[in-house]
């Protein structure tokens, strides 16, 4: 673990969906070159919180964010921030694999292209490198021109990872990346996360306790204690500590399975 440098720092964040108060007073520091897991029961707002970190929630109308989130010390909700540049630095993998309806090659080349790379040789190199890093190159190197939609679910998800790696972000947000794919692919993606950690800061939302324990260095537990109350951050600690010796009763209850 690379010290205690905070890549992302969140202070007193409140989040509203229209009239619904979803998250209350969240403060958390995401450490650089480490993997942080967000856990908690479904509907506790952990995905919503994740989507605040690259302003993905801006795409949803009538949402409101209060508080402060900084990336390398700079406020990402400041008025002059360009969300496109922000998301280039803070990439995201989604729950359902969402390759574009184009070839495998074009999927991976999409990011570099929109950021101005047009040189074919350069693109070829980026595509190969990204697919290799995403542990997909061996499977698809012979059929780069077939549609990304023709791949299996697990392959599609790795394609999406390759696609994000191709724009070389600093942070990778993963929103339950393994919930819709087969066990073999889950194994591959977890191995991949372990490798990627040396170069990226990773945040993963998962409802799978074992997965959180396996892949993460730090864990944050979110909980909305009543259905109509906003979710809060209950506990945030090293993963080892959290899973062996949680300090909050509610965390212990959840981890040992009482909340489901």
């Amino acid at each position: 673990m690379n010290g205690d440098t905070f890549k992302i720092n969140v202070e007193h964040l409140d989040f509203h969906y229209g009239d619904f108060f979803a998250l209350e007073d969240i403060s958390v520091g995401i450490r650089q070159y480490a993997t942080t897991a967000f856990i908690g029961p479904s509907g506790c707002g952990k995905s919503t919180f994740l989507r605040c970190l690259n302003r993905m929630n801006d795409l949803i109308p009538e949402t409101k964010v209060e508080g402060k989130i900084t990336l390398d010390g700079n406020d990402i909700y400041a008025p002059d921030v360009d969300t496109a540049s922000l998301r280039r630095r803070v990439g995201m993998i989604f729950q359902a694999p969402n390759p574009f309806p184009m070839s495998i090659y074009d999927n991976v080349a999409y990011g570099p292209r929109i950021h101005g790379t047009t040189n074919k040789a350069q693109l070829d190199e980026i595509v190969e490198k990204s697919l290799t890093r995403a542990a997909l190159w061996k499977e698809v190197s012979g059929k780069l021109n077939t549609s990304g939609l023709a791949l299996s679910g697990g392959q599609q998800q790795r394609l999406c990872i390759a696609r994000v790696i191709a724009v070389d972000p600093e942070v990778l947000l993963m929103d339950e990346p393994c919930s819709a794919i087969d066990p073999t692919s889950i194994q591959k993606i977890e191995d991949l996360m372990d490798e990627l950690k040396s170069k990226y800061t990773i945040v993963i939302v998962t409802h799978n306790m074992q997965q959180a324990a396996r892949v993460s260095d730090w864990t944050a537990f979110f909980l909305a204690e009543h259905a109509d109350r906003p979710a809060k951050l209950i506990e945030y600690d090293k993963t080892d500590t959290m899973f062996t010796n949680p300090s909050d009763k509610r965390t212990e209850d959840y981890i040992t399975g009482r909340f489901g």
Binding site: N54, M56, L59, T83, A84, S85, L86, R87, R88, R89, G91, M92, I93, F94, A96, N98, P99, F100, P101, Y110, G111, R113, I114, H115, C160, R163, V164, A166, V167, P169, L173
Partner: peptide, 22 residues
């Protein structure tokens, strides 16, 4: 599908790039 838009936005595409390319 919304996933196409989100996938593109998550790579730092501007809104117009997402519209035009995806």
């Amino acid at each position: 599908p919304r996933g196409f838009r989100e996938g593109s936005a998550a790579m730092g595409a501007t809104q117009w790039q997402t519209i035009k390319n995806v």
